[in-house]
Amino acid sequence: MVKVVRNVVCPFCGTLCDDLEILVEDNHIVGTRHACRIGNAKFMHFEGAVRYTEPLMRENKKDDFKKVDYETAIEETARLLTEAALPLIYGWSATECHAHMYGVELAELVGAVIDNTASV
């Protein structure tokens, strides 16, 4: 059965429209109402998009990726962050504010430069 989730906030552009209705069936989004074309695309799984569901790792950038668990990927990332002379932590504009908070804490811990897309 199709369930309608009302007053959904659109996580695409800075207009942050908060009147979307999302049609959900069996934990899959099957349609949107009130969303613009870009917003609709964000909710619908559009063809050609590759979604990662497991962490991937490779030593050399020319190699193929190998599946690993979160523990391993995070431990290796932590090692890279602590061993680097000047790590750069960049992005942030397409996630929520609690993640930002932890991001700033992480940047302070490893002495990184932290920046987001506003600087470009």
Partner: peptide, 10 residues
């Protein structure tokens, strides 16, 4: 100038 990058949500 940077020797390692963590990119998130962009």
């Amino acid at each position: 100038e940077t020797d390692m990058m963590l990119n998130i949500a962009s």
